[in-house]
Nucleic acid binder design. Sequence first.
DNA 1: GCAAAAGTGTTGTGTCTACACCCATGT
DNA 2: ACATGGGTGTAGACACAACACTTTTGC
Lengths: 242, 242
Amino acid sequence: MGRKLVTETNTGHPTPAHVTLAVVLQVRAGELQSLLWQRARAPFKGRWALPGGYLSKGDTLEDSIRRHLAEKVDVRDLSHLEQLETLSEPKRSPKEWQLATAYLGLMPSDVDPELPGDTDWHAVDNLPALAFDHDSIVPAGRERLRAKLSYTNLGFALAPSEFTISELRDLYAAALGHDVSATNLQRVLLRRGVLEPIGRQRASGPTGGRPGSLFRFRTSELEITDQFAVLRPPGPARLPVA
Amino acid sequence: MGRKLVTETNTGHPTPAHVTLAVVLQVRAGELQSLLWQRARAPFKGRWALPGGYLSKGDTLEDSIRRHLAEKVDVRDLSHLEQLETLSEPKRSPKEWQLATAYLGLMPSDVDPELPGDTDWHAVDNLPALAFDHDSIVPAGRERLRAKLSYTNLGFALAPSEFTISELRDLYAAALGHDVSATNLQRVLLRRGVLEPIGRQRASGPTGGRPGSLFRFRTSELEITDQFAVLRPPGPARLPVA
DNA sequence: GCAAAAGTGTTGTGTCTACACCCATGT
DNA sequence: ACATGGGTGTAGACACAACACTTTTGC
């Protein structure tokens, strides 16, 4: 209350504390799940929260969130990391003037980091009430993922290095939250040049069935694959990337 | 490694200074232009920079940028304002550890705020070298505008309250940076229910020609009008918004 | 042979660009 | 009449969803 906690710069401006947070998403057990951290201390003691922590001098925001994820929840295998937004409601933390920059992190479905005891995965469709304003951040991350799955090659960040179309379909379905047709998914992603066949097949399951061909993403760099068709510059339609 | 991990008691976390900046865009004289401010002080004395300033206690980031734009460059007529990104390179300011949150602001083409002497509009295609890392922010704002013009009704933020299709075409062409067909622009925006006819016409010019009908944007709330057609949920195609 | 799973062929639809053509006004 | 600019009609290109059908495996 009466505590003066605000530090100042040499220019005499009061400065807020700054933390970084991450919505780390992964498809696990057919569901899109988010990594949460159970708070050991007030405020919001015992509540689940997004992992993260204070920004240290010398770090960029991205350095900061990577460091916190590595140190506190032992997560190093992010296949994608991007900034979502910076939250600044003056009262968002009951204890201090604190800004928070939120990131979206993605992990391929085939890694399974060892987590400390106070950390666990939660299905994004069934989250507990979260600490601070974190409730609003998870949907923002999810929306960003949904949008970019549709118009970029971001699927690479959810998938293992090789997979069948059916497996990829299940990942997309979990991330998008609705059924996806393997037939059409394959055609869309092949037409766009996002996927390429790897030439091998996966063995059939015990119940039989035709073995699926293996594919991989052509690149793990984020690319926009569906230039907005609308209001595009005049000229002949662009060719497939070949 | 030996670093002391975060404590929730806010003892002794060094905190960065925080400023807000804005890329304020308007179509002027057929060109997309950005509002810049000439620095009177070191660092980068004399260089052009994005308008903005320090975050004050009690303000959100959005409050802050609105206040700075109103106070320093007398700009109050923003038709749209959204957060772009937060920049955090530790050395981005030579004088202090300083984060900057950048916003995109838009103004309709028919307002012309009075500007102080150290402030002026510059064509985004022909900008001088800017102070700090501001060079990278303007393109980010421009890209955001371009994308949202394609899949939302954001055009409302660039246009006056009534306009002919030709006038709107010129605004879109300036903002997108390429020719736009009035024919197709009209059909796309009408089909999407973004525009509605106002029932009146504009008088012909001195050289004659058929007078153009006047239109307006149906709403000035940002709406997504082109749900990504790709990977959409199964079911019958959605109907026009009617 | 039969069930299971993968993959292809095909049809229909919606949305866009491009371009020809028609309409309304001033001189 | 004719030039100038606004607006409509229509054809073609694409990209997609849906679904029937074929292929390849295990048992």
